[in-house]
Design a protein around this nucleic acid. Structure first.
Length: 460
RNA sequence: GUGGGCGUAGCUCAGUUGGUUAGAGUCCCGGAUUGUGAUUCCGGAUGUCGGGGGUUCGAGUCCCCUCGCUCACCCCA
């Protein structure tokens, strides 16, 4: 019989158990921080009705959507009725509109699930990936103060992930649009186009952006472009510096002043939330490509690994669910692309080898003593230690090799001597030492050892 | 969706101006006398040379087509 090649589609990340443990450790850190800040969990279906998912989308989104069709509909040649979600924000909008009358506002939710995009595979880009989202949705209005709570949450996440120094960079869409208005770029679509272009500043460089803006596609004057470039190059080094640089921009349109006031409030509150000044900064080139953002926008980068780019981004939007309800539902939120983040951290060598979730292996010296081994394993499990017992007899060396490869830290040997003495021999494969303890003290001893070296599993 | 690069063991690759039975390292499996892994030594398994066609006495190598992967753009986590 011809064999089928075992393979997965490009753009998916499938991990071996030890890597999966590291990845899940990362998600646990994200989740616990989201919960610590008082966000509530929800999950939504992977599939949604296509018309619900694609309401506001232009051609770009639709191009990246996977449609889903039942066999029956496929045979009849119908248009697909269902599609896979491509982010968690659109399903959130649908969720809030659908359950509006049962929800408590401001609605603070977090959601950690996979999303799907039909992209051509590329380094660090996935077709199936995890997003970790937090959003706050208000009914009719939502204070700009929430715009500061989001970065505070994000600070907690990346601090606990311990992946090195990072900076949460902030900007405000109103401030940008107001600045462009002052230069005579009044049309909304045109403002968006300029905005998307300056967003590339950090990636493409000053000259490239200048060339594009003065070029035929935009046709802006050299003076206007110089003013834009001066604006988007603003970066801050501390809170006082940020406020000073905002003042130094001079006065502007009503939109501009509104944006500036929002930014001032947000920056001040981020500090009040306890985020160190070294970890947040003004970056007036941050724009975000998505057009639904209206005010504050965020991007987070690792200081020592700028090539990785943004590892977490989001912002403020008015009218989240305008396509589904007449209610006004403003919100602010952010998303961590966990799959890409994990993949890039691994590429950069920032993730060490995880230890197994299995903490102890009970070896088998003598098949006849199997009940003794199983009783020992049960004892340890009852003491909260994840334990595996060797079920098939083999050479002890082979059993050690198995434990080593599996990343199991403690190997327990129970032979005639130990049984006679009421002891257990423990080999700690991580510390590379061996000791013998009374069986009655075993669980306590292992617990103490394990707690000593407790970590997130993501540390290098 | 648009443009460039690359396809040889599971992985990283070598393979001369076309010339016998296609190699190395790594990984995997087994062994090196009594109850100890990761080091060392010995042995073993593994390939429609991406696929199809053409040129030739002879193609991994040259030509054409095709498929796959990958990088950049677009967009984005």
């Amino acid at each position: 019989m011809a064999l089928t090649t075992a393979r997965t589609m490009p753009g998916v990340l499938e991990l071996l158990p030890l890597d999966q443990i590291a990845f899940q450790g990362m998600l646990d850190t994200v989740r616990s921080n989201f919960e610590r800040f008082g966000f509530l969990p929800i999950e939504t279906p992977v599939m949604e009705f296509a018309d619900v998912l694609l309401t506001k989308s232009g051609g770009e989104t639709e191009r990246q959507v996977y449609f889903v069709q039942s066999t029956g509909a496929l045979e009849q040649g119908d248009k697909p009725e269902l599609a896979l979600r491509f982010d968690l924000t659109v399903p959130l909008a649908r969720y809030v509109a659908e359950h509006e009358h049962s929800l408590n506002f401001p609605f603070r939710r977090y959601q950690i699930q996979r999303v799907y995009r039909g992209e051509r595979a590329q380094r660090g880009r996935f077709r199936e990936f995890y997003q970790c989202d937090v959003d706050v949705i208000g009914k009719d209005s939502l204070s700009v103060r929430y715009d500061a709570e989001i970065p505070a949450t994000i600070y907690g996440v990346f601090r606990d992930l311990a992946i090195g120094p990072f900076t949460i960079q902030l900007n405000n869409r109103r401030l940008m649009r107001g600045w462009f208005e002052g230069l005579g770029i009044a049309d909304g679509d045109r403002q968006m186009a300029v905005l998307r272009e300056v967003d590339k500043l950090d990636k493409r460089g000053l000259d490239h952006v200048r060339e594009t803006l003065t070029g035929a596609a935009f046709g802006l004057s050299t003076e206007a472009v110089d003013r834009i470039l001066a604006f988007v190059q603003v970066r801050s080094t501390s809170l006082a510096d940020a406020l000073e640089k905002l003042d130094a921009l001079g006065s502007g349109s009503e939109t501009f002043e509104q944006g500036r006031n929002e930014l001032r409030d947000v920056l001040g509150l981020i500090k009040a939330f306890g985020v160190p000044e070294s970890h947040f900064a003004l970056n007036l080139s941050i724009a975000r490509g998505l057009d639904y953002y209206t005010g504050t926008v965020y991007e987070t980068t690792l200081n020592d690994h700028p090539q990785i780019g943004s590892i977490c981004s989001g912002g403020r939007y008015e009218n989240l669910a305008g396509n589904y309800t007449k209610s006004s539902l403003p919100g602010v939120g952010i998303s961590i692309g966990a799959t890409r983040l994990y993949w890039q951290l691994r590429e950069a060598g920032l993730i060490g080898t995880a230890t197994s979730t299995v903490q102890a292996l009970v070896t088998q010296m003598d098949e006849a003593q199997l009940p003794v081994y199983l009783a020992l394993a049960t004892e340890l499990r009852q003491a909260g230690i994840n334990t595996e017992a060797v079920m098939e007899s083999s050479k002890l060396g082979k059993q050690f090799k198995y434990a080593d490869k599996a990343g199991i830290r403690f190997v327990l040997v129970l032979g005639d001597n130990e049984i006679a003495n009421g002891t257990v021999t423990v080999k700690d494969l991580r510390r590379e030492n061996q000791f013998e303890v009374a069986r009655t003290d075993l669980a306590r001893t292992l617990r103490a050892e394990l707690e000593q070296g407790a970590g997130t599993g993501v540390r290098a």
